[in-house]
Design a protein around this nucleic acid. Sequence first.
DNA 1: AGGCTATAGTTGAGTACGCAACCAATATAG
DNA 2: CTATATTGGTTGCGTACTCAACTATAGCCT
Lengths: 130, 130
Amino acid sequence: MSAELEAAHGLTINDYEALLHLSRAEGGRMRRVDLADQLILTASGVTRLLDGLEQAGFVERASCASDRRVTYAVLTETGRAKLRESSESHVAGVRAFFEARYSGAELDQLAELLGRLPGGADAVDEDCAA
Amino acid sequence: MSAELEAAHGLTINDYEALLHLSRAEGGRMRRVDLADQLILTASGVTRLLDGLEQAGFVERASCASDRRVTYAVLTETGRAKLRESSESHVAGVRAFFEARYSGAELDQLAELLGRLPGGADAVDEDCAA
DNA sequence: AGGCTATAGTTGAGTACGCAACCAATATAG
DNA sequence: CTATATTGGTTGCGTACTCAACTATAGCCT
């Protein structure tokens, strides 16, 4: 489901999630390692993911003054706009999907239960936001 | 989790699930299309998955008398043994994982809710079996 | 200072898929 | 009974990952 809708916007799920995380981060920027962590990807996975997003102009690189090893991924204005635009249909799609199958109370139940899975707390929050 | 444990037995999750489905099927054999369906893979995915399992000697090909288009995937005795052997640790691992986080009642709740997802009924049954 | 060890990031090789194009056998229509 | 559509299966190509090796910094500890 997600895959199809994202494809309509030209973003994969991970593209989308990357932009989402960046948009929530202070200053719209994150270290690549931290992003990898949130997306449950390896460092190399993030490198390649960001390659694509950079080429599309949705993120930029920035270096860190206090630690020359780190390069930040920074959300551009273009990227922020893209996220807003694709959020609209994606979030609506996700909401419809769940509302078609579960009542409000069941949704709470499900979120609570799934939230106990490793990394689950974040994931659930994410989908609820927006 | 699954990935790690399976790797210990040299089987990926899909290898394992394929053997599992075959073991439950009448005569230990299934059409490749039907297997694809159960594993949520495309036909080509199944072709390649079975390539590996054939080389390992866990499944064999057989043709269908009444429809010469179909080739069955048949579980060999070796494959059945492999499944039994890896089931042991895998099922124990899965059980431990869930029992560490959920009570029996919660497990039922979760299974019911997740069972409403597309293809969910099968998936849940599977994991409960053992 | 000099020498370990850990951390951030990139790159090359390999893997597990999907998609589209294809072939062969079967069903359906006219 | 041919002509067309459908179904089962394989193959080539592209993609999104992982893992292992590597570079460059940074933080210790003596």
